[in-house]
Design a protein around this nucleic acid. Structure first.
Length: 987
RNA sequence: AGGACCAUAGCUCAGUUGGUUAGAGCGCCACGUUGACAUCGUGGAGGUCGGCGGUUCAAAUCCGCCUGGUCCUACCA
């Protein structure tokens, strides 16, 4: 074996071997256990979140597999509609200078598939680097034919049941991608904005007395007005106003309800009049209390408009430019005027209220012009500035503005025909499944988040105006009648349409999440009733981030219950986000992204900087990012190996909260791998080719042997319990603790005196070798789900010595998970070893405090102990001498015979290192005083407790007894320390 | 505005149903290389558990309020 652990030499090799040996497929034996991977985007590359999540899933999967379950980890990728289309569009533009429209739909889709075949496997290759034991033979892609069949089936059935409908609704519109998006794909961000205040003059020059009152009804302001004051952050929408609404309880405007006012924009001769209506929506205490209603461009206004029969005038096109189609402004304004008077003008689609000079402008340019014109006309509300001059009132304020999470552009509410899922009836059973425990969230508090969202569900807009995705299985005839079916042919048959009736398929595709919602059962062959579906559905656990509960988890629950009558998974393990060392979200624009592969393989500083600053949206940040990177990673990143990275994730995986990724812990766990490596090296050096008792030869087990076996049982139980509870931090901690602090620090050291003792019996040497090997072999099995590579590499060498290796094709992957054997837990042995460790530490302590060289042989006396201490000394003389580097150890019956010594306590017993000539009186006195003080404090605390009548009366007897015991112990210790102090003082 | 989560050593975090001498890793200080490992070993320093109040015989732990932080949802023209 190499002297240090070299992960790069073993990881890829083992992964290829496992895959070639078909180790990842279900065994076909045992209780089914299945996990469906949250499908990563096919365009994606592995980020820290994936790496974290995959580590957890793989750890669970390997663990369950070793426990003998019929284990399936189902893998696949998601076609990621917008992201993929965007990527291929860019590629085609760069390579051929063509847009997707130049190519046409079919040719473009071909390009996407080409791209997918070439580059779509990037993330799955990276998944292999993480050691993920997914069943590659069952890999699925959401655009696969089989999966498409499931998607179509679901669509058709929901439509037939009336749960999918098409309608004109206000939706979130992404003007960059020219598609509808769901509200979950919208990110609300705070931006600096303006709020303008404009005067809407009353029709016919009417005026009224505007009166403001305070809370007590006293008049605080009155003036004569011939307008109503309106505020807006989007002046361009004024063009599409259909009404001004005031609250019916607002006295200021009560007299105006039913009257008309004028929108202060557009050609003077065609100024539009709109009604002033009463609605509960306006808040009298906010702004002027009057709200302009633009039903086609604002979600709140849309509701008001619907309630009051106000027309919805669309002002923009798909690019969010001001419309340049439909009727002329004059014709449109005339129609709108009729509508304002309450006349029915029918379909308003052709009505284009954008004045000629604004048509075709971007909405923001239109906004500027409108503000200018209205202000010039004197219809801006004014306020006095610092010098007392009246100025147009423009408030600078923070606005929450919607942005597309992929496009980054401002999202517009936009009126279009879209397909929707009516979610109400689907939501009910989905809520119940969580309420009644069929699905459990871990940690449980995420259930509240789920309920909160499910209780307030909007119909889900599932159509997207994209080319890449599952095309909607709906056809239209010339009259616009809709026929939904699994194919054009079925549409004809179902509806008795003649062959000469022309049908055209809907152009739109489905939201990617619509197909992802079918993931758990769609991947198992549904709608066919396959054996896989029977065996592995519902899946056992879903591992996912909380940010995706709405997008995906909730929808999976709804869809799966609807179509299979089963829950998609029994448990949902929700993990936190992986953040950088400072707790910042990792993002390209912040330049703080870590690539898991770089942590595994290492990366030069310059390459890392190049990676972080290359191809940036905001190049001006490059310098700061380069500096920050230089500060954080002076020498780049060293290679750590996959196992160390996995172990780091696991150790930081506490209950559901975000993790700050800690590089120093990554270093620490790489060292841990090295520790395990070297411990194994030691074992091999001492056991390979030696008699390890594989054939059941007689052995003699030392105290240390029995102790480490006992500790192993406890560790096995701890790790198993922690895994059961998804406490990967506890599981990894227990393993770390055992390997480093027990097996390496103590047991390996304790094995040396036996193995190196020429006088030791063959049976005792054999016993120690057997224990060394067997315990290590168990450790490797225990470690395997967390650290698959190093455990396999070492296991292959160790297992033959332990007699558990079944030949060339064997693997630790398929070994049984270690189960604790309670009969091997030996508390007496544990106490004995604790005693031994206590004495050794006491001697080391004295050495450190007295400045005695670690290697200098010492003569040590033990005294004042109980008879069992003397016995322990006799049994452990060899160990003691070796580990504490002692020349001799003597049991002193009469403490009065003790020479002047440095002392330490082990229980009641005193450890003495005679050093008459060496002792530093002052140092030793100071130390003793400090010790005594400490005991005093402890004693004081307990005496206070025991002096409390309430405590004696009410606390459980066992607790009181325990306190009494402690008191006695501390008092005895103090007494010994005082005696020692007296001796030193007497010098 | 509503809700969730968090606050424990210089840093990253554990701390089960209240009873521990409040722990780990990293970092820090001192010492140490003869054979598993300097990616190491040995010893050590370092915390009034964010603040205030309450419940209790007993609070890092349960309850309330406050402060600070993170996030989600809704946002008001």
């Amino acid at each position: 074996m190499e002297k240090t652990y070299q992960p790069e030499q073993i990881e890829t090799r083992w992964y290829e071997r496992w895959e070639a040996d078909n180790r990842f497929a279900p065994s076909g034996q045992g209780t089914p256990f299945s996990i469906m991977i949250p499908p990563p985007n096919v365009t994606g590359s592995l980020h820290m979140g994936h790496a974290f999540q995959d580590t957890i899933m793989d750890t669970l999967t390997r663990w369950k597999r070793m426990q003998g379950n019929n284990t399936l980890w189902q893998v696949g990728t998601d076609h990621a509609g917008i992201a993929t289309q965007m990527l291929v569009e860019r590629k085609v533009a760069a390579e051929e200078g063509k847009s997707r429209h130049d190519l046409g739909r079919e040719a473009f889709i071909d390009k996407v598939w080409e791209w997918k075949e070439e580059s779509g496997g990037h993330i799955t290759r990276q998944l292999r680097r993480m050691g993920a034991s997914v069943d590659w033979s069952r890999e699925r892609f959401t655009m696969d034919n089989g999966f498409y069949k499931a998607v179509q089936e679901v669509f058709v059935r929901l439509y037939d049941e009336g749960l999918i409908y098409r309608g004109k609704r206000l939706v979130n519109w992404d003007p960059k991608f020219e598609t509808a998006i769901s509200d979950l794909e919208v990110e609300n961000k705070e931006v600096d904005g303006h709020m303008w205040h404009f005067k809407y003059p009353l029709a016919g020059g009417e005026s009224y007395e505007y009166i403001e009152k305070d809370a007590d009804g006293n008049i605080t302001f009155r003036e004569n007005r011939d307008y109503i004051s309106i505020a807006t952050t989007r002046p361009e929408t004024m063009l599409g106003d259909g009404a001004v609404a005031v609250n019916p309880a607002d006295d200021r405007y009560a007299a105006l309800i039913g009257k008309l006012c004028e929108i202060p924009v557009g050609p003077k001769e065609h100024r539009r009049l709109i009604p002033i209506i009463a609605d509960e929506y306006p808040d009298p205490d906010f702004g002027s209390g009057a709200v302009k209603i633009t039903g086609a461009h604002d979600f709140n206004d849309y509701e008001v408009a619907k309630r009051n029969g106000i027309p919805l005038y669309n002002l923009m096109d798909r690019k969010a430019h001001m419309r340049n189609d439909g009727l002329s402004y004059e014709e449109s304004a005339a129609l709108a005027a009729k509508a304002a008077k309450g006349e029915d003008i029918g379909n308003v689609d052709e009505v284009n209220l954008v004045p000629t000079e604004l048509r075709g402008l971007d909405r923001l340019d239109a906004r500027r012009q409108i503000v200018e014109v209205v202000t010039a006309e004197g219809l801006a509300v004014t306020a006095a500035d610092a010098e007392g001059n009246e100025q147009p009132l423009v408030e600078h304020k923070k606005l929450m503005q919607p942005f597309g999470d992929r496009s980054g552009v401002v999202i517009e509410p936009y009126l279009t025909d879209q397909w929707f899922v009516a979610v109400e009836t689907l939501a009910k059973p989905a809520i119940e499944a969580v309420e009644n425990g069929d699905i459990q969230f871990v940690p449980k508090n995420y259930e509240n988040m789920y309920f909160a969202w499910m209780r307030d569900l909007q119909d889900w807009c599932i159509s997207r105006q994209l080319w890449w995705g599952h095309r909607i299985p709906a056809w239209y005839d010339a009259e616009g009648n809709i026929y939904v079916a699994r194919s054009e042919q079925e549409a004809r048959e179902k509806n008795g349409l003649a062959a000469d009736v022309t049908l055209t398929q809907d152009e739109d595709v489905l939201d990617t999440w619509f197909s992802s919602g079918l993931w758990t059962f769609g991947t198992l062959g549904w709608p066919e009733q396959t054996p896989e579906l029977e065996t592995f559905h519902p899946s056992s656990v879903l591992v996912t981030g909380f940010d995706i509960i709405f997008f995906w988890v909730a929808r999976m629950i709804m869809m799966t219950l609807k179509f299979t009558g089963e829950v998609p998974f029994k448990q949902v393990y929700v993990h936190g986000l992986v953040r950088d060392g400072q707790g910042q979200k990792m993002s390209k624009s912040k330049g703080n992204v870590l690539d898991p592969i770089d942590l595994i393989d290492g990366i030069e500083l310059d390459t890392l900087i190049e990676k972080r600053t290359g191809n940036m949206m905001q190049p001006q940040k490059a310098k700061a990012i380069a500096k920050a990177t230089r500060d954080d990673f002076k020498d780049g990143i060293e290679p750590h190996g996959t196992d160390a990275l996995r172990f780091t994730f696991l150790s930081q995986a506490t209950t559901g909260r975000d993790i700050k990724f800690d590089m120093s812990r990554l270093d620490g766990y790489r060292n841990f791998c090295n520790k395990l490596w070297n411990a194994s090296r030691y074992v091999l050096m001492n056991a390979d080719g030696e008699d390890c008792g594989v054939n059941g030869e007689q052995v003699e087990l030392s105290l240390a042997d029995r102790w480490i076996i006992s500790q192993l049982q406890k560790t096995e139980a701890q790790v198993t319990k922690a895994m059961d509870e998804y406490r990967f931090d506890h599981a990894s901690q227990a393993l770390y603790e055992f390997i480093w602090n027990e097996y390496c620090d103590w047991y390996l050291e304790l094995s040396k005196p036996v193995l190196w003792d020429e006088n030791a019996s063959a049976a005792s040497k054999r016993g120690t070798r057997r224990t060394l090997v067997r315990v290590l072999e168990a450790i490797l099995r225990l470690a395997h789900p967390m650290m698959p590579f190093i455990s396999e590499e070492i296991w292959q060498r160790i297992a033959p010595l332990a007699g558990t290796h079944a030949g060339d094709n064997d693997s630790v992957m398929v070994q049984p998970w270690p189960e604790a054997d309670q009969s091997k837990v030996d508390e007496q042995t544990t106490r004995d070893i604790e005693w031994l460790k206590g004495v050794i530490i006491a001697v080391r302590n004295i050495r450190a405090e007295m400045n005695i060289a670690p290697g200098k042989p010492l003569d040590v006396l033990l005294t004042k102990g109980k008879p069992e201490d003397a016995e322990r000394l006799e049994k452990n003389r060899l160990f003691l001498a070796k580990l504490a580097k002692l020349e001799s150890v003597t049991w002193l019956e009469n403490p009065d015979d003790a020479p002047l010594s440095a002392t330490q306590l082990v229980g009641d017993m005193e450890v003495l290192v005679p050093m008459a000539d060496l002792i530093d009186k002052d140092t030793e006195l100071a130390r003793l005083n400090k010790e005594i003080e400490k005991q005093d404090k402890l004693i004081g605390g307990i005496e206070k407790k025991l002096g409390n009548e309430g405590f004696i009366a009410k606390a459980p007897e066992a607790v009181v007894e325990k306190e009494r015991g402690k008191l006695a112990e501390f008092q005895a210790a103090k007494k010994l320390l005082e005696e020692q102090r007296a001796k030193i003082e007497a010098l």
